[in-house]
């Protein structure tokens, strides 16, 4: 097992290097000269040269690459170009609110999604199933934007049940400010989750071992909840784990609308302001997180599916 872990970690290195290379090429080569952006509207050549020297962009490309790699390894990306706040500090403070949104959303989405998917699979091929398919398809087609705009307008502004925007640290943030964003996020992500989990469950129901279970006289409930669910949980678990890092960024719209100081909102601000250090650091960090979570998903896969032997 440890051998397998070692092998996977070593496999991550070329991928990580690829990500570094990609980010570097993107920002340092395609991205052109940030000095003009930073110097502001009224600049003179001296200022620009100065800024270039400070940023290190007057060095040859390979040297810059080396510097970037060192930055990644030490997780020290310098300061934000816009606010001069150290990037690592940005991370430390913004991670909390993002997680406060993501974790409840993920848990609720999985629980509700699996339950509803099982229920839907139970009534498959009936008119309820078709109606539900239509409903989920329509729900998925309405843009996330519309949900948030309308939700924010109706529930926060008109009805006043929730605060329109804002955040508070600690428990108050969770209880007061996170509720509406989480509910809206759920409304959006529940439909595709149900569809996906329904597919997993239906795939399992058609298998031969279900016929054997019925031949043994097992009740339909037990067939679904014990036999089918246990098998369907394999793709569900791996799907949940593998989608975790993407959720960090997926919540960015919620953070932006509700002014929640999370990582997603930082990224949007950084893009608007061409704040390269922030974007670069977030990209690389999320890439590393994705690779780690993929590894966790594979390990979980082995734990959940006895047929798999990780060699």
């Amino acid at each position: 097992m440890s051998f397998y872990l070692l092998r996977r970690v070593l496999q991550m290195i070329p991928t990580l290097f690829g990500v570094i290379l990609l980010v570097f090429l993107l920002f340092s080569w395609v991205g052109g000269d940030p000095a003009y952006v930073l110097a502001g509207k009224f600049s003179n050549p001296d200022d620009i040269a100065n800024i270039r020297r400070q940023l290190g962009v007057d060095q040859p490309l390979l040297v810059q690459l080396g510097i970037f790699i060192r930055q990644v390894l030490t997780f020290d990306f310098g300061n934000s170009w816009a606010t001069q706040e150290p990037v690592s500090h940005i991370f430390a403070t913004r991670l909390g609110p993002s997680l406060a949104l993501m974790v409840p959303m993920l848990i609720l989405e999985t629980l509700l999604g699996v339950t509803l998917a099982l229920a839907v699979a139970y009534v498959r091929d009936s008119w309820i199933d078709r109606l539900l398919t239509l409903t989920t398809t329509t729900a998925m087609s309405i843009s996330l934007l519309v949900y948030i705009i309308v939700g924010q307008y109706v529930f926060a502004y008109l009805l006043g049940w929730f605060p329109v925007q804002g955040w508070a640290t600690g428990g108050e943030g969770w209880v007061r400010f996170a509720v509406l964003p989480v509910l809206l996020g759920l409304a959006v992500s529940l439909a595709p989750a149900i569809r996906l989990y329904r597919t997993f469950v239906l795939d399992e129901i058609q298998q031969d071992y279900v016929r054997t279970a019925r031949a043994k006289g097992v009740s339909e409930w037990r067939v679904m909840l014990v036999h089918v669910l246990r098998n369907a949980s394999i793709p569900i678990v791996t799907n949940v784990l593998a989608s975790l890092p993407a959720l960090l960024i997926g919540a960015f719209l919620l953070e932006r609308f509700f002014s929640i100081p999370g990582i997603g909102r930082e990224v949007i601000l950084a893009v608007e302001r061409s704040d390269f250090p922030v974007i670069k650091s977030v990209t690389v960090s999320v890439a590393v997180a994705t690779m780690v979570f993929n590894l966790l998903a594979d390990l979980a896969y082995q734990w959940v599916d006895p047929r798999v032997q990780l060699s």
């Binding site: 960024i249 999320v286 890439a287």
Partner: peptide, 23 residues
Amino acid sequence: WLYGVFTAVPYLLLVFAIAAVLQ
């Protein structure tokens, strides 16, 4: 390997990064 690199970064983030860079 190319696939691994492109999927390590969440899709929208990658798009944002490129959008930030292309003026």
